[in-house]
Design a protein around this nucleic acid. Structure first.
Length: 284
DNA sequence: CGCCAGGCGGGGG
DNA sequence: CCCCCGCCTGGC
């Protein structure tokens, strides 16, 4: 990888990133398309990304230091994707196709609080509505930031949300999830949930603790573990994945499912990312 | 109007 | 443990 500094952007070359697949695979909800690129709010800043030819992209509003310290991690660039994708391809034919089609998709390492709240919101909702609800939450309680004429809001901090009532959250259209969000914040405040200590635990232990929050079940817990706590042995299962696993792999029960997930070892999360995206886009 | 959407909690077998 | 139902809300 090579980083070249220009007056107001960095040119990163030697890394293959499929931004469409990465940003719109359902692992995150705040990136948007702009003319020729993508805009997002990450690390409390507005960031613009413009893909170029030959495994190169430009990134605006990001210093070389910030790229090395934050985005290198965020885009999962410390991993050897050649190796990961090779192993997935060798697992079976379905995964081989998924990997071929979406080569360059990255598993994002996101901020745990944003990830937790976003996936609590995601339950029983479609992607479009998840995006709208997350955006409303940011506009109501986040901090307004600007860059090159774009204005956005940061994702609210725990401090910003702890004084907000359930009723106020419901006004945003969150419905019964408002109560769940409040419970998550209360448990964070009380120290019953602590992301740092969760990250140090085995996935099964961490999942149990996350599930003590009202509104966090297996699926939401696994998304938090995989997308923000680096638990790559976790494989979130939703209705789509369940259906696909039955159809493609003949998986009918929990026992078979556990065995299937275990067969990927530490790459289960990567397998899920590629399988899920492949399934979602091939069926329509 | 009913049904569904990238689940979950609560109750009952 | 497994199954089943209702659920805020908005779109179709």
């Amino acid at each position: 990888m090579n980083i070249k500094e220009y007056t107001d952007f960095l040119r990163i070359s030697g890394v293959e990133i499929n931004f469409d697949a990465t940003f719109f695979s359902g692992q995150c909800f705040r990136w948007k398309k702009v003319d020729g690129g993508y805009i997002g709010v990450v690390n409390r800043k507005i960031v613009l990304v413009y893909p170029q030819d030959n495994n190169t992209f430009d990134i605006y509003n990001c210093s070389p230091d910030e790229f090395k310290k934050f985005f290198y991690w965020y885009f999962d660039l410390d991993k050897d994707y050649d190796l990961i994708l090779k192993e997935l391809s060798e697992h079976d034919e379905i995964l081989k196709k998924a990997v071929e089609k979406y080569r360059g998709m990255r598993l994002l390492n996101q901020e745990p609080f944003e990830c937790m709240i976003s996936f609590i919101i995601s339950q029983n909702n479609n992607i479009k509505r998840i995006q709208i609800l997350v955006e409303r939450l940011c506009q109501a309680y986040g901090e307004k930031i600007e860059y090159k004429g774009f204005s956005f809001w940061t994702f609210p901090e725990i401090e910003d949300l702890k004084k907000v009532s359930i009723e106020e959250l419901k006004c945003l259209g969150l419905g019964y999830r408002a109560e769940y969000i409040k419970d998550a914040i209360a448990k964070l405040e009380e120290g019953k949930i602590d992301f740092e200590s969760l990250a140090s635990l085995e996935s099964d232990e961490a999942r149990k603790i996350l599930k003590t929050v009202k509104g966090i079940g297996d699926k939401v817990a696994d998304c938090i573990l995989l997308y923000s706590l680096q638990k790559y042995d976790v494989f979130p299962v939703d209705v789509w994945v369940k259906r696909a696993l039955r159809e493609y792999y003949g998986i009918e029960n929990i026992k078979q499912l556990r065995q299937f997930i275990k067969s990927f070892g530490e790459l289960a999360g990567y397998a899920q990312l590629f399988l899920f995206h492949y399934i979602r886009n091939s069926n329509k």
